[in-house]
Computed example of a mutant assay.
Amino acid sequence: MRAAVNSSAAPSAFELRFPSLSGTGRALSFPCDASGSVHMDSLSSRALNNYLLARALMGRDYGWPSVQASCQVQT
């Protein structure tokens, strides 16, 4: 995983999803490109903290992330 250097602020068609390993359903997801690169500068401070936390706790509290189609509805 790496942070994307050049990315637009437009809504992403993909999300990087970290599944919860505790079984509580507390998965975390973040907008990314098709290769899984997250543009960290576009995240809010809370989302950035959650993203860094999920990366640090992979294999302990969160599983390995996967790239999925975003569920956001665009109008």
Rank of each mutant, 00 (worst) to 15 (best):
M1C: 07
M1D: 08
M1Y: 03
R2T: 02
A3C: 06
A4Q: 07
A4M: 11
V5M: 04
N6M: 03
N6H: 08
S7D: 12
S7Y: 09
S8P: 01
S8F: 04
S8A: 03
S8Q: 05
A10N: 05
A10F: 01
P11W: 09
P11H: 12
P11L: 09
S12T: 04
S12H: 05
A13S: 06
A13C: 05
A13E: 08
E15Q: 13
E15C: 12
L16D: 00
L16V: 00
R17P: 00
F18E: 01
F18Y: 14
P19L: 04
P19C: 02
P19Y: 09
P19E: 05
P19T: 03
S20D: 15
S20K: 05
S20I: 01
L21Q: 13
L21E: 14
L21R: 15
S22V: 06
G23E: 12
G23F: 14
G23M: 10
T24E: 13
T24F: 10
G25C: 09
G25Q: 07
G25F: 05
G25P: 02
R26A: 15
A27R: 08
A27M: 01
L28R: 14
L28W: 00
L28F: 01
S29E: 00
P31H: 02
P31I: 01
P31S: 12
P31N: 07
C32R: 05
D33P: 05
A34G: 03
S35V: 10
S35E: 12
S35R: 15
G36I: 10
G36N: 13
S37V: 14
S37D: 03
V38N: 02
V38W: 03
V38K: 05
H39L: 08
D41F: 06
D41V: 07
D41P: 13
D41R: 12
L43T: 06
L43E: 06
S44L: 08
S45L: 09
A47M: 06
A47G: 03
N49T: 13
N50C: 11
N50M: 13
N50Y: 11
Y51G: 02
L52E: 10
L53F: 14
L53S: 12
L53W: 13
A54Q: 06
A54F: 04
A54S: 12
R55P: 00
L57M: 14
M58R: 07
M58T: 14
M58G: 00
G59M: 04
R60N: 14
R60T: 15
D61L: 15
Y62F: 13
Y62Q: 03
Y62L: 01
G63V: 00
W64P: 06
W64N: 05
W64A: 10
P65N: 02
S66E: 06
S66H: 10
V67G: 04
A69K: 13
S70V: 07
S70T: 09
S70E: 06
C71G: 11
C71A: 11
Q72W: 02
Q72K: 15
Q72G: 00
Q72S: 11
V73K: 10
V73A: 07
Q74M: 08
T75C: 12
T75Y: 10
